[in-house]
């Protein structure tokens, strides 16, 4: 019997071993991750923030954006969008790979590691990637002079929290997927794309006719964006709405993680 194996310890920190492995796997993609983390904000800030921003500000001043420059208005939304996309990449693909493409989760589960620990480990590693993306973005926002460190530092943890809620939900949904072609097409084209367009990213959600606004209400991106605006440039939100935004994302996070752990364990036990 190998006495170097401490099962009690693995039971308590096993998820950290999985996160360590995931980070190891991600490091193979570090070049691409870095290019996306820096290139994405750079392109968006220049094209939309400055390019479209000039157009908006010339035509309507700051009236349509609640009294701030257009770039200030969309910066927290672009930040949230990048964070949520990063969270999705690191929860959807590893889960498909783990259960179907390479069956890596079955290898992990042949050790003392449990299905629930695999879910938490994948999630923790995804959050690390999100942290990297968000911090890169934030530094660029400061460099562009869009926000200042003092007034916007809290946007970083809040955006990460929102991305966590979204990532946990995507992880739980992906864990059941047998045929990824359908799933990825529907998710990408019919959910993510409209979410990006109808979550008050480029214009206030209230500009939409009322019957289209519910798309924003159910979208985690809208909640993340509203919070981001509030904490980066003091966009006013009532205490009730603050509670709703945080509450919605907290529910996504806790339901996502709870179901992901359960579904992972069931699928591994077949």
């Amino acid at each position: 019997m190998n006495s170097g194996i401490n099962v009690a310890r693995i039971r308590s920190i096993g998820a950290a071993y999985i996160a360590e492995a995931r980070i190891n796997q991600m490091s193979k993609w570090k070049g691409i991750i870095a290019i996306v983390a820096i290139g994405n904000p750079l392109f968006y800030l220049i094209a939309i923030g400055i390019g479209v921003g000039v157009l908006v500000n010339q035509n309507s001043g700051t009236a349509g954006t609640g009294g701030v420059e257009y770039i200030t208005f969309i910066a927290p939304a672009l930040l949230a969008s990048a964070a949520l996309t990063g969270a999705m990449d690191e929860t959807m693909f590893p889960v498909m790979e783990g259960f179907k493409w390479r069956k890596l989760f079955f290898a992990m589960n042949a050790t003392p590691i449990t299905g629930g620990q695999i879910a938490i480990g994948v999630f923790l590693a995804a959050m690390l990637r999100v942290a990297f993306t968000v911090i890169c973005y934030w530094i660029l926002l400061i460099a562009f002079g869009v926000v200042t460190v003092a007034e916007s530092w809290d946007v970083v943890p809040i955006t990460m929290f929102a991305a966590g809620g979204f990532g946990a939900t995507i992880m739980a949904l992906t864990a059941r997927v047998k045929n990824e072609d359908y799933f990825m097409t529907i998710l990408g084209r019919l959910i993510i794309m409209p979410m990006f367009l109808f979550s008050g990213t480029f214009f206030p959600l209230t500009n939409m006719p009322i019957y289209l606004q519910p798309i924003g209400w159910i979208s985690p991106l809208w909640h993340a964006t509203e919070l981001g605006r509030h904490f980066s440039y003091g966009y006013p939100i009532s205490p009730l709405m603050l509670l709703i935004h945080f509450g919605y994302l907290t529910i996504m996070l806790s339901l996502g993680l709870t179901f992901a752990q359960k579904i992972f364990s069931e699928r591994l036990a077949r």
Partner: peptide
């Protein structure tokens, strides 16, 4: 913790090296 399992289908991580695969797996046993 005290079994070694060789499944019917190899479920190695193809993107990692031989050594990395062994190393990562050892970590799962703490």
């Amino acid at each position: 913790a005290h079994l070694g399992v060789v499944p019917q289908q190899d479920n190695l991580d193809g993107e990692l090296t031989v050594t990395e695969n062994l190393f990562i797996y050892g970590r799962y046993f703490g």
